[in-house]
Simulated scan of single mutants.
Amino acid sequence: MKSCLLLPLAVLAAAPYAYSQQAPDKVVRATIDGVMSAIHTDPAARSGDANRIYQIVEQKFLPSTDFMRTTQYAVGNDTWAKASPAQRDALFKEFQTLLAHTYATQLMQIRGQNTQFKYPPMAPLPASATDAVVRTEVTTGGDTMLIDYRVHKVEAGWKIYDVNMMGAWMIVVYRQQFAAQLQRGGIDGLIKFLAAHNQANA
């Protein structure tokens, strides 16, 4: 379930600075087009250089996300409230690294395929809206996936913080997995678990 749900991260990327004030669906579309263009035009990334692809993730994907919010929701508000500032920072950094490495790995898998993206029209949002869901269709190797991106509005614009594929939201899936780790080892145990996972997959 986990690896399957992380696939949507492979079709995200960012050129956030130019698009941050646009409507959320426009931001998501520019994000997707931006990362795929970066992969296709970079010789090293196009050939499958993992380090280069990860650099592209850091430069173009992470600025488009709010993984601090993702981390808070994934561990749960109660746990987040109990965590010290240092623990929160460590959880965020390790979780973001996990997602970034997963994203880069998925990019390597789809970089040479004829991946196509469709963007169904999005109804206009009220001016006061701060949260929205952007729907997309992704076709890779003849298979079509319906992928939803949950975004929220901050001062800099719209940021992606959750992904839904096959009816399950990423945060919900991770919350279930993190709950088991938190029960066994508490906040520090979860941090160590994530750090060990990242080290093994670096």
Rank of each mutant, 00 (worst) to 15 (best):
L6Y: 13
V163R: 06
I160Y: 01
E94Q: 06
L107H: 02
Q177S: 12
N51Y: 04
G142I: 00
P126I: 09
D66I: 08
D42I: 01
Q109T: 11
R29W: 10
G112D: 15
S64G: 03
A132Y: 04
A13P: 01
H197Y: 02
I32Q: 13
G186F: 00
G185I: 02
A74T: 04
Q55K: 00
A129M: 07
L12Y: 09
H40L: 08
E155M: 13
G142E: 02
A179E: 13
W80T: 05
A81H: 15
V154Y: 13
W80L: 05
I160H: 00
A81K: 15
E137N: 01
V138I: 04
R29I: 12
A196Q: 15
R88V: 11
Y174Q: 14
A13M: 00
P16T: 05
G186D: 00
F67P: 00
A179G: 03
R88W: 09
R69S: 01
D78Y: 11
L125V: 09
P121V: 01
M122S: 13
P16Y: 09
K159Y: 09
P85N: 10
Y119C: 01
A74W: 04
D89C: 04
Y19Q: 11
L91P: 11
T144L: 08
W169S: 08
T65I: 14
K93E: 05
Y174D: 13
Q113T: 08
V11D: 02
A30I: 02
A195T: 13
Y17T: 15
A15W: 08
H40Q: 12
L194M: 03
R135K: 09
V163A: 11
M122G: 15
P24L: 10
R46A: 14
T79V: 03
K192N: 07
K153A: 12
A195K: 14
P121A: 02
Q176M: 15
F193Q: 15
Y73E: 15
G141M: 04
Y17S: 15
A127H: 06
G112E: 12
V133R: 07
K153E: 14
D131E: 13
A202K: 12
V173I: 06
S64W: 00
R150F: 09
V172A: 12
Q181W: 14
A10D: 08
S3Y: 13
T139N: 07
L7Q: 12
Y103S: 15
T31L: 12
K192W: 04
P85F: 08
M170Q: 07
I39D: 04
T71D: 04
F92N: 10
G141L: 11
G48A: 13
K60N: 15
M68S: 07
L194R: 03
T139Y: 02
I32L: 10
E58I: 01
S128Y: 00
Y161H: 11
P126G: 14
N51E: 04
L12V: 08
G157V: 05
L194F: 03
K153L: 15
Q59L: 12
V172R: 10
A44S: 11
N198Y: 04
K192H: 06
Q109I: 06
V138A: 00
T31G: 14
V151A: 03
P24G: 11
D162R: 03
